[in-house]
Simulated assay, not measured.
Amino acid sequence: MNKPWILGLTGGIGSGKSAVAAHFSDLGVHLVDADQAARWVVEPGRPALAKIAEHFGSDVLQADGQLDRAALRQRIFENADERRWLESLLHPLIGQEISQYLARAESPYAILVSPLLVESGQHRLTQRVLLVDAPEAMQIQRTMQRDTVPEEQVQAILKVQASREERLKHAHDVLLNDRGLDWLRAEVERLHNFYLTLRGGQP
């Protein structure tokens, strides 16, 4: 069997990449979620968590020894140097975790879902990139509704994420998600059928 090629799936917050990923998964495509890999590498007992606690102090841990994400997020959002320190610790570990999961794929192609595909350099693990795009006003609206957070917080997250121009530069395919779910599913099916004809992610 040919080794599956890897499609990177990305998009800004509130663009709808989770809905797109879920439908690819329903179609039988092997998915790896970088956010999940990021959670696995900081589970209690894993070396990364000990290093984070040592660096930031025990107030970034919850009473049960799990990582207190909110406390850590606050620390790194306020301080770019701390964010870079954390990224240089976690990105290589997350990369290893992702590669191990992708290696288990049985489908003709596999998908790496990552909001920071471009920023983290994870796009280098892929042969092709699909960008889920949406108008910014729609991204903000969706995220505020989904996470019940104020607009300022969504704006702050958007600022940290790669710009639309930056993402478009890396994208081979763009799915503009500004209509209903049925239309989105039909687009995913159209892309899936196209991807099945590709060898190594290229026509």
Score class of each variant (00 low, 15 high):
residue 142 R to C: 04
residue 114 S to E: 01
residue 125 L to I: 03
residue 151 E to N: 01
residue 112 L to G: 10
residue 163 S to Q: 11
residue 106 E to S: 15
residue 94 I to P: 05
residue 131 L to I: 05
residue 144 M to F: 02
residue 166 E to H: 09
residue 61 L to G: 08
residue 162 A to K: 12
residue 108 P to F: 11
residue 148 T to C: 08
residue 75 R to I: 11
residue 148 T to M: 00
residue 128 R to H: 09
residue 62 Q to S: 14
residue 121 G to S: 05
residue 61 L to K: 07
residue 83 R to Q: 13
residue 161 Q to C: 01
residue 84 R to E: 15
residue 128 R to E: 10
residue 110 A to D: 10
residue 156 A to E: 01
residue 95 G to A: 13
residue 136 E to C: 03
residue 96 Q to V: 11
residue 59 D to H: 11
residue 99 S to K: 15
residue 89 L to T: 05
residue 132 V to Y: 00
residue 86 L to A: 05
residue 120 S to V: 03
residue 159 K to S: 07
residue 166 E to R: 10
residue 162 A to Y: 04
residue 111 I to V: 15
residue 140 I to S: 01
residue 83 R to F: 00
residue 129 V to T: 09
residue 113 V to L: 10
residue 72 L to A: 08
residue 169 K to W: 03
residue 97 E to D: 07
residue 142 R to V: 00
residue 113 V to G: 06
residue 131 L to V: 06
residue 159 K to Y: 01
residue 106 E to W: 09
residue 125 L to E: 04
residue 140 I to M: 07
residue 155 Q to G: 04
residue 173 D to M: 11
residue 139 Q to E: 02
residue 120 S to C: 03
residue 80 A to Q: 12
residue 93 L to S: 06
residue 166 E to W: 02
residue 149 V to I: 15
residue 109 Y to M: 10
residue 65 G to Y: 04
residue 70 A to C: 02
residue 127 Q to N: 12
residue 110 A to P: 09
